[in-house]
Design a binder for these strands. Structure first.
Lengths: 225, 225
DNA sequence: ACTAAAATGATAAATATTTTACATTTTAGT
DNA sequence: ACTAAAATGTAAAATATTTATCATTTTAGT
């Protein structure tokens, strides 16, 4: 799954000292969800922190026409719902399970107790959130300033940083197209051109970047700063 | 100044108990900057929290061609630089003074001491950051999904929430155009159409919204969810 | 009141992007 | 190996947006 918010963002749970992570897990209820099942609904007022244990969660918004617009996919260790803990506002997104997932659910009450006691929690949460903000700003800037070709190259490069060693991005072109804010047709043209330049190799539901450095150089040269 | 990040975001300093805010101020150095003076440079490694006391700060990126691309303007009570405190990464933006400004500069060392002692600091910082993330997600979604007319209406409405009582947005059309990711010409057409619909009144470097509820209804009807 | 600068308004030609429709390739499951 | 489903490839017409200019309006400062 091509995943914007995952870029260079270490998972919340991995940022905590193991002992603290254990305490959070101990205070949580582990819930299981089947494929597509709703975990939280936009507008819901019940606060609480959720952390993915196994599987993954879809973050998105259900449009008026019933279409599900994806914002991000969150994997093991990643958290959501933190917005409700600190703002007293209703949930802003619909969250549903991708495949079967196991999610730790931590109530606001129990979260507050741990939060007060362990300062590592606020630090991990801030780091996660600040990295997300940073990625969103980069993304917004790319969409506003860069033509599709450059935008595509830049986002592909960013996404590559997630993968430890691999150089293959998995995901459908229409997903990537939505992330970039263009149609699949336009993305297709951009990918073809990047392929022609020898920067990427297009596959079936995947894109390979044979030479990270080469793409990096191209982006530096063509996308400014 | 039209300001994306200000929408519905209470300033960091206002979220703190007065006693804690005083402690932060006492631990800071108050620096003065003249119009256009650089406060921080992208790439700089020196961490620290900055809080606007008087005036305002430009957050942006200097493009290769020397153009200054604005990301946000921050006013009194608002903070920046928190990214450097929690990520050990270099600064991601150039920040410069708008007019004459007074900025509290707090070193990482002094910040850490206060942060450890007063949990209200992490709470305020998280609330600020999470609100910013939320606004960025909304913005990104609007740019990706909505045609210019709808996008314009939605962002104008969002911006209105900042202003306590007033219903006048001040700022140039080309600034707003950049925020929306379009040219001034395209924005001009959208504004004209919204004006024709009776939803806004276009002025010189300002836009008035005579009837908040009417615009709100229109956005609800035309922008989904 | 006058003037220069700043900001908006307006237009047409050039480009870029989407829409629509259908063809081809690839994969997973039998 | 075969088939249906999923994903990508392609092309042309329709639409949207930008670029480039110039005119007009508004403001701030004398």
């Amino acid at each position: 799954m091509l995943n914007l918010l995952k870029i260079t963002t270490p998972a919340f749970l991995d940022l905590l000292p193991p002992a603290v992570a254990d305490q959070i897990i101990a205070a949580s209820v582990l819930m299981k969800y089947s494929n597509g099942q709703l975990i939280h609904t936009r507008g819901s007022l019940k606060p609480g922190l959720s952390i993915v244990h196994k599987g993954a969660a879809h973050v998105g918004v259900n449009g008026i026409d019933g279409t599900f617009v994806m914002v991000a996919a969150l994997g093991p260790g990643e958290c959501f719902g933190e917005f409700t803990l600190f703002t007293e506002l209703p949930r802003t997104h619909d969250i549903s399970s991708i495949g079967e997932s196991h999610i730790y659910q931590l109530s606001q009450y129990k979260f507050d107790i741990l939060y007060q006691r362990e300062s590592s929690i606020s630090k991990a949460l801030l780091k996660t959130t600040l990295m997300r903000t940073h990625i969103l700003l980069e993304m917004l800037d790319a969409i506003r300033r860069l033509p599709i070709l450059e935008r595509t190259a830049k986002v592909l490069l960013s996404m590559l940083y997630t993968l430890g060693g691999s150089n293959v991005l998995r995901g459908r072109q229409d997903e990537l197209a939505y992330t970039l804010g263009v149609t699949r047709v336009s993305l297709g043209k951009a990918l073809k051109e990047l392929s022609r330049l020898g920067l990427i190799e297009i596959g079936y539901a995947k894109i390979a970047i044979p030479d990270h450095a080469q793409l990096s150089d191209w982006v530096e040269l063509n996308c400014g700063t």
